[in-house]
């Protein structure tokens, strides 16, 4: 690897997400049943979610924040645990708004 401009590798995740527009809905369009997550050994959502919205808790569950969601569907597709993730679209006009896409 060549010399790296530190701002690339080092871009803070919140700065990355600050480039995306969200019209946050009062209703969480995705809910996670942390009880189910406790028995999950893979927790694939934690790494795969491109918005980094799934955070493992000390008790073995999952803390989830729907507000900066890309609505891509990665989490429910990689989820092994039946019933852990309830996934819907946000209400019309709300959620992520890509300016470029």
């Amino acid at each position: 690897m060549t010399g790296v401009d530190p701002r690339y590798r080092g871009i803070a995740f919140e700065d990355r997400m600050a480039t995306v527009d969200f019209r946050v809905s009062p209703r969480p369009h995705i809910t996670v049943d942390s009880e189910v997550c406790r028995s999950c050994t893979t927790k694939a959502c934690v790494h795969a979610c491109p918005a980094n919205l799934f955070v493992p808790t000390a008790e073995g569950g999952i803390l989830f924040n729907y507000e900066q969601c890309f609505e891509c569907g990665t989490c429910y597709q990689v989820c092994d645990a039946e019933g852990a993730i309830t996934w819907t679209y946000p209400d019309g006009g709300q959620g992520v708004v890509f300016r470029k896409g």
Binding site: D5, I11, D15, R16, M17, T19, V20, P50, A51, F70, C72, G73, T74, Q77, F98, R99, K100, G101
Partner: peptide, 13 residues
Amino acid sequence: VRGGTLQEYSAHL
């Protein structure tokens, strides 16, 4: 890509 400014990060399946 050196020196560019991130304008938008995005993801899709």
